[in-house]
């Protein structure tokens, strides 16, 4: 009888353990199923010069980073200076202006500095859907064979850069 009476207590302890673990998880962050899969193909016009296009196929054989941003996105401002700083690493950074008014995006880059080698545009958000974007900024690290190795949801913080992105970059380049 005693042992049976302990069952509720034991179940409760298990529950508490999960709840405790849950406190340190972020329920809103959705891990991308695309990590470890080939980056979806796209060919998109380049910001400021619609006669030229940029495609992920152009980057075959290189480790590179795709940063999806927009001029209307406040959180994108937060990571802008860090992106500019990142030019010192051996990591080609390409931008994608997501559902943006072209002139607005050009103005932001002119005012705050342009961290991107090239900025492509995703006017109707179609590429965004393929990449599973649900809130800008989002950033993808893609390896030589075109596989997505890492996805950052929200602004990149110096800690993310130091602890996740740079070690991964080192590993991919070695």
């Amino acid at each position: 009888m005693r042992l049976k009476a302990l069952i509720p207590f034991v179940l409760f302890i298990i529950l508490i353990a999960f709840l405790g673990k849950g406190l340190f998880l972020n329920p809103r962050e959705v891990p991308s199923p695309l990590v470890g899969k080939p980056a979806p193909n796209f060919t998109a016009p380049i910001l400021g010069d619609a006669t030229k296009t940029f495609s992920n196929a152009d980057m075959k054989g290189k480790v590179w980073m795709l940063n999806i941003w927009a001029s209307w996105c406040a959180a994108c401002r937060d990571e802008h200076s860090l992106l500019l700083e990142m030019r010192k690493y051996d990591l080609p950074l390409y931008g994608m202006a997501y559902k943006d008014v072209e002139q607005d995006a050009i103005d932001v880059l002119a005012k705050m500095g342009n961290p991107y080698i090239v900025t492509a545009t995703d006017q109707d958000g179609r590429i965004g859907i393929d990449y599973g974007v649900y809130g800008v900024p989002e950033t993808y690290l893609i390896d030589q064979s075109g596989i997505i190795r890492y996805k950052q949801i929200g602004p990149i913080t110096p800690m993310d850069l130091r602890e996740k992105i740079l070690p991964l970059l080192k590993e991919l380049n070695s």
């Binding site: 009476a5 509720p8 207590f9």
Partner: peptide
């Protein structure tokens, strides 16, 4: 709750 359930196990 833990205390209550433990008490329950002891005194039920």
């Amino acid at each position: 709750i833990g205390g209550a359930l433990l008490l329950f196990a002891l005194r039920a």
